[in-house]
Design a binder for these strands. Structure first.
Ligand SMILES: [Mn+2]
Ligand SMILES: [Mn+2]
Ligand SMILES: [Zn+2]
Ligand SMILES: [Zn+2]
Lengths: 147, 147
DNA sequence: TCTTAATTAGGAATCATTCTTATTTAAAAA
DNA sequence: TTTTTAAATAAGAATGATTCCTAATTAAGA
């Protein structure tokens, strides 16, 4: 099964028609390393799909989020960002470059999850837990490294 | 020193003129239990201050955030919320009521801080760390309780 | 191939927030 | 206390991300 068929399958699995637009948009988010915004995806996609509209990007993103294929990532700059990495993980947001950097650490996830389980939280059905780290990149040209 | 004088002092401390508007707005956030939005504050304040404009609310909030007297709280509904509780603490966001509930736990804060210190993160000057818990309130009439 | 409900394109509308500018004011100086 | 003036505000306009509307298109099942 090629990549195209795999995308089709993932859409069908959640009960969505495998339209060209959805394939293209979903593929774009999946292959982006940048937690793209709707506008970013639009730019990325429009040269090879000139008739695809921005409204479709927004509505498709909403659909993919509803079906759990994509997650929204909040940042303080007023533009929603999207992430095809669905598993529990955390983010570093660089205020001076607008980068969102994945911070994956299973030990941290487990530690937080265990801690929260130990406090029982009444009358809440928890859907998502994530740690937000916000900071300034010191040298904008270099990347942030975690050891 | 009365409450009025205290507000005045806190503004002066950070080099801000103690204007009527700033006093009123700052006081409103401080006494709100609800992580209010700009609009919420405007509603709260306008009957006793009919000439205070929404633009002043926004610009004052920005100023207070800059000076570190107030923090922004992000949520997925497209409206910025504000918090006069400056110390490190975490938030629970109820997607079905839009409530933001404080989750204060010094043990958790320390645990996360210590963990992050142990991974050294290169080329980043960390400004803020916060854990976001998102979920649905089960019974909307009751409150979320943490034990 | 036909049918049809779901989806999309494109433009208009919304609405939270920011901007602009004339007017007002807090607070320092006289 | 009065004067001075840089900073702050009011009011409305502008912005921009997102959502809405509706006629045209299309995926997928019959
Ligand atoms: Mn967040
Ligand atoms: Mn907006
Ligand atoms: Zn991510
Ligand atoms: Zn809080």
């Amino acid at each position: 099964m090629n990549q195209f068929e795999q995308l089709k399958e993932r859409l069908s699995e959640v009960g969505l028609k495998a339209t060209q637009q959805r394939m293209v948009i979903f593929h774009s988010i999946m292959t982006s390393k940048n937690h793209p915004s709707a506008e970013n995806i639009f730019e990325q996609v429009k040269s090879s799909n000139p008739s695809l509209s921005l409204a479709t990007i927004y509505s498709t993103l909403e659909t993919l989020v509803d079906k759990g294929l994509v997650k929204k990532v909040l940042v303080k700059d007023g533009v929603m960002r999207y992430d095809a990495h669905i598993g529990t993980h955390n983010h570093i947001y660089c205020t001076n470059t607008s980068e969102i950097i994945d911070f994956e650490d299973e030990e941290l996830n487990q530690m937080i999850k265990k801690f929260l389980a130990s406090k029982n939280i009444e009358n809440l059905n928890i859907k998502d837990i994530s740690l937000h780290i916000e900071g300034e990149k010191i040298d904008k040209r270099k990347s942030v490294k975690i050891n």
